[in-house]
Design a protein around this nucleic acid. Structure first.
Lengths: 189, 189
DNA sequence: CCAATCTGAGACAATAATGTCTCACAGAGA
DNA sequence: TCTCTGTGAGACATTATTGTCTCAGATTGG
């Protein structure tokens, strides 16, 4: 028996490649009849909305894991090592999510529903606060807009997903690679 | 009168937001009747294919501008400054393309047609050679896979597009910001 | 003014997708 | 064996999309 989770995973995987995939295609991609797919999700919109919700849930959990409140405290006390560890943890979770959940942060079904969009904005704000704290603590450079850091992280996540997809980077190296590229860049050591 | 170029630009802009946009939507997005849209592009596939071709043309032109052959030569002679300038030029062109053309590098209509996919692969290889030369010349770190550098650049282009879209970075600062983030990272200066 | 050209609106048939439904059937458990 | 639940296949009406076509009106250029 195919679980709802498996259907969602298959759907996301497939929608990443072909955003126009129909319910019939999504059903067979999940190894399930079209009727069964409709038993899990009344409509295509419902499926997309659930996919968006799951993505935001993961994102939120990753932010929780980074524990922004304690980061704020650490920023005040200048505990750079603590903040670096938080960032590392958060990145690792982002990467893990993009692993087994696909990668839906900016995908189209996120920007379609207002409630998802609002939630997404709120999470962006939370994450931005974290980067701002990191800047104050001297962990991240403060000569660039704080929000740029968030975009750069997102971009590196895209890079990580693509690199794994193409087999250009081993999964076990990915966390360190992303963190190192983010902090140190690609210039000579 | 609306030119084919304007139609393509509008279509790309719209498809970036909603990949499922119908011909009717694309037509009105371009401020044009549906019949007129079909006069420019016989089918939806034809439109998508043209969009993909244009993207690859731009990409190729940017690679040409970076003049990889001379980069190869510079790598051998260790002319780091020359290579850095090539990278800078190429990035600037990439960013300019994402400006007025949208941003279609990995979009779905690229991966659908075999000829576009093959061309894309060839361009990836060319670009990879450039990064490899940069690594040999000591302009880019050589402790990471060469292909990772390409993915990282692409990710930063995504970041740049999003940052501009959200108004988080001024356009005039973008080139330097992307270059600096790529080479130096986001860690403290 | 006039002709040639291009346009948008919309009719049209063909096709694809959606959502609902029924039904036969397989497997699990009593 | 006998339910019982869930499944896949597929029929079905509805709607959306596609691609083609015609036609009246606007624009352009002579």
């Amino acid at each position: 028996m195919v679980t709802t989770e498996e259907i969602l995973a298959a759907a996301q995987r497939h929608l990443n490649v072909d955003p126009r995939a129909s319910m019939a295609v999504l059903a067979s991609a999940a190894g399930v009849g079209r009727a069964t797919l409709h038993r899990h999700f009344a409509s295509r919109d419902a499926l997309l909305h659930e996919l968006g919700t799951r993505s935001l849930d993961r994102w939120e959990a990753s932010l929780d894991a980074a524990d922004p409140e304690s980061v704020e405290g650490a920023a005040d006390s200048g505990d750079a090592a603590r903040i670096t560890a938080c960032l590392q943890e958060m990145f690792a979770r982002f990467l893990a999510d993009s692993d087994d959940f696909g990668f839906a942060l900016t995908d189209s079904y996120l920007t379609s529903a207002d409630d998802l969009l609002a939630r997404s904005d709120a999470l962006v704000d939370r994450e931005t606060h974290l980067y701002a704290a990191a800047q104050r603590a001297g962990v991240l450079r403060d000569d660039v807009p704080t929000r740029w850091l968030g975009h750069a992280v997102y971009g590196l996540l895209v890079a990580a997903r693509d690199a794994i997809r193409d087999g250009d980077v081993a999964r076990r190296d990915l966390d360190a690679l992303v963190m190192s590229t983010f902090l140190d860049g690609a210039g000579p050591r």
